[in-house]
Nucleic acid binder design. Structure first.
Lengths: 208, 208
DNA sequence: CTCTTTATTTATCGAACGGCCAACAAATCG
DNA sequence: CGATTTGTTGGCCGTTCGATAAATAAAGAG
């Protein structure tokens, strides 16, 4: 049980949180190992020893991010009794997270690396995969609504509705990044939810 | 009239288009002067002589981008007879632009530099300003609708509706970036327009 | 104590970065 | 023609990039 060797002088969990802050503030490509080492209070070589390279560290950071900032929206989807309430609560939880005064006003999953140099393609694929999971989670919640009986054969497809609200979530992140206030995001959410009744009515008249 | 001195061996307009391609593919921070010089077929010193530094070049590129890819959505807003048709056409024109087979599947204005190193703050501010203009343009179109009489004292505020559809536009860009097809974007647009009638009805019942 | 193991610091790697300049080349002018 | 103006070339500036090796420090094991 006892750990051999020299014990490390920093707490990896704390260091990971500090790395999260830096990546959050500057994005993936905008963050250098120097930035990280300085913020984490250790030499860059220690980062390699403990976390692997920049890319490995970023993946670990995103895992932490998912269990912290990513949890409230996921919980909203999971715990709200009706599908409509679940979607609405997810949007509001998202708006809460991306306007917190103690953190940058955007979602890392969405904006930390949307574009970049070719050599960072793997990171973008990684994030795209996580976003795909996000879409699938929303879709699953809609399917559960059908199973629960509070959503009956929507006029628009489940896929379309899920993608629509995912689109709104992503758009909210950019709005917050551009300085929109929590109240302004709330008005956007209200507008987005105004489509709900139309979208979830039985298939009656026109499409397109 | 005759131009003194040695004439340049490249066409600045062509070079600017080539620079646009590179910035579009890799974003602002992901593009190096080497990348640009290689794609433009000239030495980096020629870039400095003709366009100024990287930041100046990017601003000129964005001006070109605005008059090309940015024009169809703007024209849709301007030329459609009714406000509803204008918004709908703008969304579809946006979807067309960000799924063109001959260009990256996203909007540069939105995703070329959403985050990044502190030294590139000015570029982000520049883009944020352009996006603010975008929002204002949508808002103006709604106001024109009220003046035209096809939009009467909307239940939701004009600001909220404008910001909502701007949010959708920005979300669409991320969807396309993640591989959504034109058809999938169309379903999102259909969902987004489903809110229109509710949003633009006279102020009657509840809010929030 | 000595030996082993692990973590740290320091120094540095080669490559690429954005930026810039002096020398050369090509045109018009007088 | 020579003088002048302008564009292009090639290279180099100091810095920083991500990454690594060697040397040092601190703990437990025997």
């Amino acid at each position: 049980m006892a750990t051999r060797g020299r014990p490390r002088t920093f707490d990896p969990d704390t260091a990971l949180r500090q790395a999260l802050e830096v990546f959050w503030e500057r994005g993936y490509e905008g963050t250098s190992l120097n930035d990280l080492a300085q913020a984490m209070g250790i030499a860059s070589a220690s980062i390699y020893a403990c976390f692997g390279g920049k890319e490995d560290l970023f993946r670990k950071v995103m895992a932490l991010y998912g269990t912290t900032s990513g949890e409230p929206p996921r919980r909203a989807l999971r715990e709200q009794p009706t599908t409509r309430a679940a979607i609405h609560a997810m949007l509001r939880a998202t708006a809460d997270e991306i306007t917190r005064p103690d953190a940058p006003h955007y979602c890392m999953l969405i904006l930390a690396a949307p574009t970049g140099a070719v050599e960072n393609h793997a990171i973008r694929e990684f994030l795209a995969g996580l976003r795909h999971d996000q879409l699938a989670t929303v879709k699953d919640r809609l399917a559960r609504g059908v199973a629960d009986g509070d959503l009956t054969a929507p006029h628009a497809g489940l896929d379309a509705i899920a993608r629509y609200y995912t689109t709104v979530v992503q758009g909210l992140s950019l709005q917050a990044r551009d300085g929109a206030t929590r109240a302004e995001l709330e008005t956007v959410i209200t507008c987005a939810m105004a489509a709900w009744d139309t979208l979830t009515s039985a298939p009656s008249h026109r499409a397109s």
